[in-house]
């Protein structure tokens, strides 16, 4: 086997640029996904038939289609339908928002429904409003339970950004592929790309474990 370390070294600056974009898409996408997911999750639990139905359709459509198809739809099909063209990077971020939002909605719903009914009754019996019950009792408890699955979703979404190679966003995987197109060193470059993903997800998993230990999951 012929593994050339200098190829790895030479690739690193470009791969780091890709990593920066990967992290950027993941961060913005998941932040948006949390906002959307909390809304959709609460709509599923507390919404009336209409709102609940809209949230459910959104979740099922996203969960029932592959992310690659979703981003191709946003980037290639939507402009044809609406005449609105978005840059590939924004299409990528938007795809993560939509995609992670659907999974996060289910995380939110599960966490809210897992809260002991007795606690909600205790709140009601004290005479606090339904809103106060949600804000001060259900919310904080559900949030703690959401942390582990949310962390998991961040890691999944980070790896999912590699699929944006199909719309030419210069994230980590795409950068790797482009390096190989010029130097034909698939072994070194894919090894490097894989190790960079692994390093980032390992760090994320470690931070998540620290966070889980700090908050008391009740």
């Amino acid at each position: 086997m012929d593994f050339q370390f200098d190829v790895v070294v030479d690739s690193i600056p470009v791969l780091m640029e890709g990593l920066a974009l990967t992290l950027q898409i993941t961060f913005l996408g998941v932040v948006g996904g949390i906002a959307l997911g909390v809304l959709a999750g609460l709509a599923r639990v507390y919404g009336n038939v209409l709102i609940n139905g809209i949230a459910m359709i959104y979740i099922e459509v996203i969960r029932g289609t592959p992310l690659v198809v979703q981003v191709m739809f946003i980037y290639f099909a939507l402009p044809l339908a609406t005449g609105l063209r978005v840059a590939a990077l924004y299409a990528a971020i938007f795809a993560i928002v939509l995609n992670s939002g659907a999974y996060i909605a289910e995380i939110v719903r599960g966490a809210v429904l897992s809260i002991n009914k007795g606690l909600i009754e205790a709140g009601k019996a004290l005479g606090v409003s339904s809103w106060q019950n949600i804000v001060y009792i259900v919310g904080p408890l559900a949030f703690r339970r959401m942390v582990p699955p949310l962390g998991n979703q961040v890691i999944i979404s980070l790896k999912d950004t590699s699929l944006f190679i199909v719309i030419g966003v210069g994230e980590l995987t795409r950068q790797g592929q482009e390096i190989i197109a010029t130097n034909f060193r698939a072994l070194e470059v894919w090894t490097s790309v894989a190790l960079i993903y692994l390093a980032v997800t390992t760090i994320l998993a470690y931070l998540l474990r620290l966070l889980e230990r700090r908050i008391r999951i009740l």
Partner: peptide, 30 residues
């Protein structure tokens, strides 16, 4: 409900609040 306090078989204390915060909760919010 503010006129009729209730005590449950299973206590139902809010697990993320201290004893003090549990007791203060209704006085503050209700």
């Amino acid at each position: 409900r503010v006129e009729a306090g209730m005590v449950f078989q299973q206590f139902n204390l809010f697990p993320h609040m201290t004893a003090r915060e549990n007791v203060a909760f209704g006085a503050r919010r209700a």
